[in-house]
Simulated assay, not measured.
Amino acid sequence: MTELAGARLDALAELVAGGDVVVLSGAGLSTESGIPDYRGPSGAARRHSPMTYQTFTGDPVARRRYWARSHLGWRMIARAAPNDGHRAVAQLQRSGRLAGIITQNVDGLHQAAGAHSVVELHGSLDRVICLACGDVTARQELDARLRAANPRFTAAVTAVNPDGDVDLPDVEIDRFRPVDCRDCGGLVKPDVVFFGETVPAPRVRHCFDLVERARLVLVLGSSLTVMSGRRFVVRAAKLGIPVAIINQGPTRGDDHATFTVGAPLGQALPDLVRRATPAPAPA
């Protein structure tokens, strides 16, 4: 870490130590767990165009392609382990310094690291919802049904994307058989917000409420390219609430930030926790 980044972490730690911090995390927080982001330094997903809601619901061939790739990709994400960055966020929460955690990620790694009451802005890959009857089931159950429907599907994964999608050759996709809702036969999709889909209004309102009561908004690993997350940074800045961004590379929120720190999150966040949490006095 550079001397400048260290100095900024010192100043940021003073704000974090005061509490009432709201974390807004993005895909960059999970790259050190082996899940690449769309726009950051990992770069692996830049060749991949994420599925849109309109394509998923309107194109049966594209939907089969998605489920074939997601069937394998979800298994990799389900096996991913939280990294030092996730654990540092959970530690800040346990120390009482966080007023909320909002994540744009769908991988569940905040919770796996011990965090609670996490607002999953874009949903979670661990759940599946029927678009016809609204039934929500565990992804493990769908996985079992897809395995049963595709006993000879043995494609190998080369890389996984943040939405659980992977790259597969067409010959493997053509032989894959999706399944529908077990109750009504309707279309099922992961309980995540696809591109072109709207985040539920009550969830957005809850996030705005958290941000508006915060003393600091701490952005972790997000390029803030998509307005879905950037709007909370814009609101905080408009209200005069300090915004700090720790990310590798520039973001679309830098103009609104009081502090920007360019560093790997697995290194910077544990360091921030140490600086913001004084060691206990000797007995």
Rank of each mutant, 00 (worst) to 15 (best):
P60W: 09
V21W: 00
S42F: 02
V261P: 04
N161V: 08
D59G: 13
W67P: 00
V21S: 09
G134S: 11
Q91E: 15
V160Y: 06
M1Q: 11
P190T: 12
V166H: 03
R79P: 00
V234R: 05
R139D: 05
R8L: 15
A115R: 01
V160E: 05
W67M: 03
T198W: 03
G19F: 01
D20Y: 06
N83I: 10
A156S: 04
A281T: 12
R213S: 09
H122D: 00
L142M: 11
P60Y: 07
V211S: 03
S124P: 00
V166N: 06
D254L: 05
M227H: 08
M51W: 02
A236M: 02
S223W: 00
V234W: 04
G114E: 11
A237S: 11
V243F: 00
G108L: 10
E120P: 01
T2G: 12
P82E: 08
A45L: 12
D59A: 11
L72C: 02
V217Q: 05
R127S: 12
A81N: 08
P202A: 13
V234P: 02
R275T: 05
N247Q: 09
P60L: 10
A68R: 10
R235P: 02
R203I: 13
C184D: 12
E141G: 09
Y38S: 04
T158G: 10
T158Q: 15
E3D: 15
R145C: 02
A214R: 01
A159Q: 07
T251S: 13
G40R: 00
R252A: 07
D59W: 04
A7I: 09
P202D: 14
S95D: 12
G18E: 15
L121T: 01
Q248I: 15
I101N: 04
P200V: 04
G262F: 08
V106I: 15
C130D: 04
Q248G: 02
L272I: 10
V171G: 08
